[in-house]
Nucleic acid binder design. Structure first.
Lengths: 246, 246
DNA sequence: ACTATATTGAACGATCGGGTTCAATCAATC
DNA sequence: GATTGATTGAACCCGATCGTTCAATATAGT
């Protein structure tokens, strides 16, 4: 039998976890690939082990059972994805106190934030987390709550804070504004991407984001008309003239 | 062995389907219950048969195999749910041509439509269809496309047509307006309802709908200020005064 | 009554998959 | 070197599940 080569054993600092950290990481990466393809129910522990290049007992050594592996995968993923999204909010810095400001580009800032948040969501991991949450909501209700607390709620709160201090927005409630912003920029994504199973073109993304940001600004910053303002009025007139109903 | 009692056999008019129509309906209803609890992968055909009060071979007689049963369930469900939602759009009748109209209640109409569309979505069937679509998107990509064509796309198009002819709205593009309306009124639902696994209170629903309709009107009917307009401006001033950042 | 179709309870075949055991080997620490 | 924890390939256990077969019974149409 050939000599075997392994990496470092976990040190006492991570006593709450068993096994070697490189094996753990490989297992979680393999879990991602397997859950993407098979979901939770049809994903096999043996397949995950093979993909990770470890023995099946090693998976059980690290995670105890399939369900625990799944929970760790979901919660780690929710935190990580949300961290990335929250970092993207930096583009929404508070407005400097230097007057009316020609340097202010609210629309541009919102668009950049939207693009980065959506890019996080459009990752394979982003989608598999969402799909798995939907799929398993009934079976693991506590898991949904915790993932929401680590993921979506954190993003939402961070965005609300940013919007509250951005300036030049009329907000009755920053929570509502944040929720609506996220809804407007991402509402088209499930259909465009077939729930994450297809690639969305750059043009489609830009269009969806621009429309979402436009509508957001119309509602929450009415003093700042987006470029398409006159086009809107013109369209309405045309519809009244045509008189048809689809 | 006791005498057995059965219903009517299918007539030649439905030759494309096998078996008795009452058995078929019972199987599809049992499939709903089983998919709600177990999803697709872990749902057992034998469990569905028991719940339906039929023998397992009967399920196979009607549907051939588990996957076909699933496909039929999804597509029939998408059509039915979308039919109900589209019917709800009747509240958005075109504005009568009688001038500026004190009888016009755009906000009220939109709220009624929103409430009915959301009530359809909040049914057990509505949620299980959505959860199943997310869960199985990667395994059955063609199914998603067809369900979208029968469901979401039909609703979207019908709503766009209604909005286009409602009057008093400034729409650059009725498609975008429809998409944004649906996004605004339903964006909170996944979190509020824990993806359909919890009941949403009437107060929560009313709040979410009112906020969504308000924002929609601000963006698409800016001449019609919702009641909360002054509150919004007041809040912004308070935020600037407090100076904190969450 | 006759015929054809549908349904049934029981049983089966083949395969599967979560979790476990085992003894040998490896790796890190003292 | 000794000790301890981690890993491994192979094998196992046991319950499960999709799909099928069978002969008897029921039902609907002619």
């Amino acid at each position: 039998m050939a000599r075997r080569r392994y990496g470092c054993r976990v040190t006492a600092g991570t006593a709450a976890r068993r096994g070697r950290i490189d094996k753990r990481a490989a297992i979680l990466e393999a879990a991602l690939r397997t859950f993407i393809r098979d979901g939770y129910g049809l994903a096999r522990v043996e397949a995950i082990a093979e993909l990770a290049g470890v023995a099946k007992p090693t998976v059980y050594n690290h995670f105890g059972d399939k369900e625990t592996l799944f929970r760790v995968f979901i919660l780690d993923g929710a935190s990580r994805t949300s961290d990335h999204m929250i970092a993207a909010l930096a583009a929404l810095a508070a407005l400097a106190d230097d007057g009316d400001g020609d340097g202010d580009d609210l629309a541009g800032d919102l668009s950049r934030v939207a693009r980065e948040v959506i890019d996080c969501q459009l990752t394979e991991e982003g989608w598999v987390l969402q799909r798995l949450m939907y799929a398993e909501a009934a079976r693991f209700p506590d898991l949904f709550d915790e993932a929401l607390a680590r993921g979506g709620a954190r993003l939402h709160n961070a965005l609300a804070g940013r919007l509250a201090h951005r300036g030049r927005l009329e907000l009755a409630d920053p929570d509502t504004a944040a929720a609506h912003f996220l809804a407007l920029i991402s509402g088209d994504l499930p259909a465009l991407s077939a729930l994450g199973t297809r690639k969305v073109s750059d043009a489609e993304l830009r269009t969806a984001i621009a429309a979402g940001v436009d509508t957001f600004l119309l509602a929450f910053a009415p003093g700042r008309r987006p470029a398409g303002r006159d086009t809107r009025r013109g369209w309405r007139a045309a519809a009244m003239d045509s008189g048809n109903r689809t």
